[in-house]
């Protein structure tokens, strides 16, 4: 896609691990590139990941900078952002 390569490279932490990202992509994009295929485990322990992509299903909710319930599909990456999955 156009645009992602042009935007400035940043670094953020996903579950404590430093990953490269860019400011124009979603947190979800950074998560998937970092190999985080799921964002939570359900009541039976089964993995769950983003479904609707539009801020409706809440499956991609993660903790961002200590604030839980943030939707990875809607939030944009920022430098030094701390993302924690499966909280």
């Amino acid at each position: 896609m156009s645009g992602f390569s042009q935007s400035s490279a940043i670094e953020m932490q996903i579950n404590g691990r430093a990953v490269a990202a860019c400011e124009s992509e979603s947190v979800l994009a950074a998560l998937q590139r970092a190999g985080c295929d799921f964002t939570r485990r359900d009541q039976q322990g089964a993995p769950r990941a983003a479904v609707c992509g539009m801020g409706v299903c809440q499956e991609c909710a993660v903790s961002i900078d200590g604030e839980p319930g943030q939707l990875a599909c809607l939030r944009r990456c920022r430098n030094n952002m701390q993302v924690v999955t499966d909280v």
Partner: peptide, 21 residues
């Protein structure tokens, strides 16, 4: 349908528009 990797159709399209590869 709850398996990771199963998404909406338009859902995957918008994820890709926002950088998912």
């Amino acid at each position: 349908w709850t398996l990771p990797g199963v998404t909406g159709a338009g859902g995957l399209q918008v994820m890709v528009k926002d950088g998912v590869s």
